[in-house]
Amino acid sequence: MLPAPMAAAEPTPVVPVIHTQGLTKHYGSVRALEDLTLDVQQGEVFGFLGPNGAGKTTAIRTLLGYLHPTRGTGRVLGLDITSESVEIRRRIGYLPGGIALYDSLTGARVLDLLADLQGSAPVRRDELSERLEMSPKVLRRRVRDYSRGMRQKIGVIQALQCDPELAILDEPTEGLDPLMQQAFYAILEVLKAAKRTVFMSSHILNEVERVCDRVAIIRGGHLMALQTIDDLLARRKRQVQLRWRGAAPDLTGIPGLADVKISGDRLTATLSGEVASFVRAVASPSLEDLIIEPARLEDAFLEYYATEDENGQPA
């Protein structure tokens, strides 16, 4: 008798760490979040961008079960955000924006209490404290004596001390000085190397550009873009400035060049698309200077916010 043919091994489906489908939150007539659909994969550092009031915090609070979605669904670590919220919070670390702590406790007591309530050992606390320069002596002081930056550091430590599978960080570098911001970015690198997932909201675009793999841009509660940083930068327009010996030539017709302004020997314009073909097109012995501004997330971000109606909604 012949053995039964073996079934072809099917690849294990990759479950996104965060998955939302049409997630919507209204407060009465206020549409704080509208139809948010996104996936965040394991090991990603995911940036969630938008100005104040765009719906970032609403989205985060809905994922954590603080808010009940008006419609739509969401899963975090494969668990439903409405019915399995407690189990989700067992496996994540959360830094709320503008974190408030128990002022009468010492920093160490706050961290002990929160680790205790988390039910996990604070395996990363020492490393995080060292990186963020929170010495044992500082941790023995009461929170009420801490500066805003020190409170924020305690906030970062409490969110990450139990080595969560997913860290949800709302404006994590707010209040940190530039040195500590660098220390925080180094922590993100460590987490990334350990295949931990980080979902962070921010409106500091340099930071997102530097540390995130992908970004979602949200505006008026709507998702405007969901791309890798590289893709986002590639599609944005660069500013170019050229100077010739003698009068500037007519460059109309060069692909991707727009908003051309000529003033004597100088030309300024915006360039979209490939840089190499543009450089080839303008190369000539009379070209004296060529400046192509680097693509910045800030400009790409501003493009999404350039057109707003009078209510701040997407036009």
Partner: peptide, 14 residues
Amino acid sequence: ERGTLEVLLARPLS
């Protein structure tokens, strides 16, 4: 009001 409730509720507490 102070904001400490959300730090507590970030733990696995119903």
